[in-house]
Simulated scan of single mutants.
Amino acid sequence: MLYIHFSDADLARTRISATPDPLWEVAASLHRLQSRTGRWAYAGWYRTARQRLREKGLERAVRTVLLPLYPRAAYFPDFLTPGHAADGLDAGVESILATSPQRVLREMAILDRTVGAPPWAGQLARQDARKELVRILRAYHEAVVDPYKEQVQARIEAERAVCARGVLDGGVEGMLAGLGPMMRWRPPVLEVTYPKQTPDRDLFLNSRGLTLVPSYFNWAEPVAFADPALPPVLWYSLLHEPDTRDAVRAFSGGAGDPGKPLTALLGRARAVALCAASAGATTGEIARAAGVSASAASRHATALRDAGLLTSIRNGQTVLHTLTPVGASMLRAATRTARE
């Protein structure tokens, strides 16, 4: 168990990342290749990823270089998932290249003590060896992570909408209380379930705040840096459900008059539902906006989701609906037409 200790200052500085961390998604996706746990949630990705790695000639590099560096175990080196990666893949790999040889050797020694490091691990202290590692990381990301960037971003947008509602209802503590099922808020401590082989530890934020990074490829394995001196970051799993459609970005407008074109196409109730979902809406809120029963609102939301216009995520006893790229494009087009 990881125990993250908050002060009032830490609560004020806690935030949710708006974008995925590309190097963490690389690490988490490599863990998916090493485990059958949760395979149902990634079945399509797994088949496609294996095929793309073969087509790109990356199977050997993944097997001999990446998997030994990113074991699905109690530890893998912190420098491989730098905080700067939150600014994009380029920033992340530059941070890997800029890592001091001393830190590389220190973290490789920890890896060796924990699960065993590959015999060539010490060579990564050299700049030329890390350049080759970065080349492989880029190729792997391009082959099996980047093609899913829209799905990943969609899930993060939905997660942020859920978290925003937690803040509105109960402040930052309300948001932390809704992060389950692998996390439990017991003020002033966030208890995070760690892999069984990992010993319990405490992380004192010391007024630095916490950056929460939702991860698409992480499966029930929240992770923070092993080094407590590094900026506090917690990567955690997005919930996956079978037979749901992923989305890209939630449209940032507000619910309102859907306009005649959209109403004519979808009918008034579903047009209103689409507008309401532009800012994230529960089934009950859609029902109130459209003036229909909760069961009718649920049917309308299901129809829109089946058509690829909405994506839905469960938040406790409620379901939050947000727009898919197609839904957002449709609403933008309808809004422009109505204004013209």
Rank of each mutant, 00 (worst) to 15 (best):
M1H: 09
L2R: 07
H5W: 07
S7E: 14
S7Q: 13
D10K: 07
A12K: 08
R15V: 07
I16T: 12
I16E: 09
P20H: 12
D21N: 12
P22F: 01
W24I: 12
S29P: 02
S29D: 03
L30N: 05
Q34N: 10
R36N: 15
R39D: 14
A43P: 05
G44C: 05
T48F: 12
R54Q: 14
E59G: 09
A61E: 13
V62I: 11
L66K: 05
A74M: 09
Y75P: 00
F76A: 12
P77I: 07
P77E: 11
D78M: 12
A85R: 03
D87R: 11
G88N: 02
L89D: 03
L89Y: 01
S95F: 01
S95P: 04
S95H: 04
I96R: 11
I96C: 07
L97D: 07
L97Q: 07
A98L: 04
T99K: 08
P101S: 11
R106E: 08
D112W: 03
W120P: 05
A121R: 05
G122I: 11
L124W: 11
R126E: 15
R130P: 08
K131R: 15
L137E: 05
R138I: 08
R138L: 10
E142L: 08
V144Q: 14
Y148K: 10
K149F: 14
Q153D: 10
R155P: 04
R155N: 09
E157H: 15
E159H: 15
R165M: 04
G166T: 00
V167R: 05
D169F: 05
V172G: 01
G174Q: 02
L179T: 11
M182D: 15
W185E: 01
P188G: 06
V189W: 06
T193I: 12
Y194R: 15
T198I: 10
R201C: 07
D202G: 06
L203T: 06
L203H: 02
F204A: 13
L205I: 03
N206E: 15
L212V: 03
P214E: 07
P214Q: 08
A220F: 15
P222W: 08
P222S: 10
A226D: 07
P232E: 12
V233Y: 15
V233G: 11
H240V: 10
E241S: 15
E241Y: 14
P242M: 14
P242C: 14
D246W: 06
R249C: 07
G254W: 13
P258F: 04
L265C: 10
L266W: 00
A269L: 02
R270T: 01
R270A: 08
A271N: 02
A271L: 00
A273F: 01
L274C: 06
C275R: 06
A279V: 03
G280Y: 00
G280T: 00
A281R: 00
R288M: 02
A290Y: 02
G291P: 04
S293R: 00
S293P: 01
S295I: 04
A297C: 02
R299I: 03
R305S: 13
R305Y: 00
L309D: 04
L310Q: 00
S312L: 09
N315Y: 14
G316L: 05
V319M: 02
V319P: 00
L320M: 05
T324C: 02
V326E: 13
M330I: 12
M330P: 07
L331C: 05
R332Y: 12
R332V: 11
A334W: 06
T335K: 03
T337H: 10
R339K: 10
R339T: 08
